[in-house]
Design a protein around this nucleic acid. Sequence first.
DNA 1: ATTGTACTTGACAGCGCTGTCCAATCGACG
DNA 2: CGTCGATTGGACAGCGCTGTCAAGTACAAT
Lengths: 339, 339
Amino acid sequence: MSAKITIHDVARESGVSIKTVSRVLNREPNVKADTRDRVQATVAALNYRPNISARSLAGSKAYLIGVFFDNPSPGYVTDVQLGAIARCRQEGYHLIVEPIDSTGDVEAQVAPMLATLRMDGVILTPPLSDHPVVLAALEREGVAYVRIAPGGEIDRAPWVSMDDRLAAYEMTKHLIGLGHKDIGFIIGHPDHGASARRHQGFIDAMRDAGLPIRDDRVEQGWFSFRSGFEAAEKLLGGADRPTAIFASNDDMALGVMAVANRMRLDLPAQLSVAGFDDTPGAKITWPQLTTVRQPIAAMAGAAADMLMRGVEQEEGAPPPSRLLDFELVVRESTGPAAV
Amino acid sequence: MSAKITIHDVARESGVSIKTVSRVLNREPNVKADTRDRVQATVAALNYRPNISARSLAGSKAYLIGVFFDNPSPGYVTDVQLGAIARCRQEGYHLIVEPIDSTGDVEAQVAPMLATLRMDGVILTPPLSDHPVVLAALEREGVAYVRIAPGGEIDRAPWVSMDDRLAAYEMTKHLIGLGHKDIGFIIGHPDHGASARRHQGFIDAMRDAGLPIRDDRVEQGWFSFRSGFEAAEKLLGGADRPTAIFASNDDMALGVMAVANRMRLDLPAQLSVAGFDDTPGAKITWPQLTTVRQPIAAMAGAAADMLMRGVEQEEGAPPPSRLLDFELVVRESTGPAAV
DNA sequence: ATTGTACTTGACAGCGCTGTCCAATCGACG
DNA sequence: CGTCGATTGGACAGCGCTGTCAAGTACAAT
């Protein structure tokens, strides 16, 4: 166990006061370049690392960012974590992950944690981005937060999102461009704000192309494989089938493909399938899934960034927010419509 | 923002010293039941939460457990987190997740974090469980750690694992029981200790059944979908095919199924496929995958538990460790061998 | 009543750092 | 040469809690 070396050691070694060392550490102004270099050299030489507990006890920062999630897909969760951590490391922050069971007593899960940890900020992932109890607790405790892909109340707090509507619009256009006129759509989980936006994008694209949307071509799903599977059974069950199905996320698209496989349909010759998210699972199928790449890690990174530099919401002004770019990933699961 | 209430407020309200409040909080002995109740009532009334930074600065505990991982499958990572957190919550601990890029400068990633955070313990997931630099850094900094499914050096530190060999043995026996005599096997990533154990289980079962193991029926994989796909292409490429394939994890098994699908093989009639892990992906196929359920969350929970209660390694004695039970999950991807 | 023993409680000194406030130093200007 | 503002460095008081140690209290044994 290496000896625990403190700021006093550094101060003594470099012949300055601990306060000066502290200034250098925190990049405060008003330290002569010469002094700063000397201190930094000592820090490096002694391999000194400031103690985070002491810093947060004495100062106002905790160097801790929280990520709250409620059982979205594992791929989504890890992507968020990776994106946030990459950004946090640069500033010496760390990530606390807290799964929240939103079917349980949310207040009891959130409040104690907020009070004990006093994190600098929290990143909220859907569907927590719109959970009233979570938002209220955060505001009551005075903890800053950034919402990822919120569904509504856009002016309540800072957020990071992508243009779900436009992405769904583009995907639908891609399908239409391939000659598809009869396209099935599976709506996402109603608690996720993105679901409605994706649905809208589909509607807009169909309308702009002058194509009708049949009621029996739209099914409600829950973002799960199973719900996609069941929706596909309904969509493909009749004698008259759509030539393409656009699912609001990859897991459901995988469910569609499972049904198609079972029915011995040839993909994409007999049925085109499109997803949304570009999860790792999208490449784990044959044929590989055409989908929309969400900038999940980038969104999380941007959220962490806003939190670390202190998102300040000016009175009256809309909260600082960012809309990141998506990308259409065309793979083999979509192809020309059968004639 | 709720007023910040401290231990002093609680002490004053209940008419005792802060030290007594501290005793109650930490469940220390030698507090009159009467006093304890009074203090606890005040704590509840004021909704007091001890500040974790102050606690860890003053005391020896940090109330922080770390989880290190290096890009295993997202499902694995989230399972570990969920399992560890569930256990941590009970004791008021929190989880810090730290992805480690073991192809990069590991020392630079691990050392600063260990020094700044002073966590009470770290949970190591494969392949980090066997990473020499990580282990050395942890030991040098005096941070306790528990390894999940380590490959070797079983006596070096506490670990939690499952009987991979036996599980693979049982799965192979299941296949043999179905009438399969010609079984293909895909080995896992060589950096993971579990890979060799699973391979051994396969070998043992075949030998015990008096079945030969043909060299061209065993392929090296890397735990990835792609590696499973490629291995399956070799295994199924020839005119004479095995009637079953046992992949060392689910991702690779999914790769096998993709190849089988593309070859228009009927599963399980023409080919049985078995995996290992029971990841969410195992249910995202048609037919659903027969696999081994790893008690991932339970292992992580047990590891957290050992860390929180302070794993003490007595000189000479083997480190405390636990072997948890697995479960064979038989689904539809395995069936009787074709005659 | 005295001593012994075990149990309860509290005073106090930090843990390692930052924030506040004051002192010293340095130029440049009148 | 003195003065003033700007720059740079340091002393010191906590942040909220736990560890140490000593004092107080109760009750049984002497």
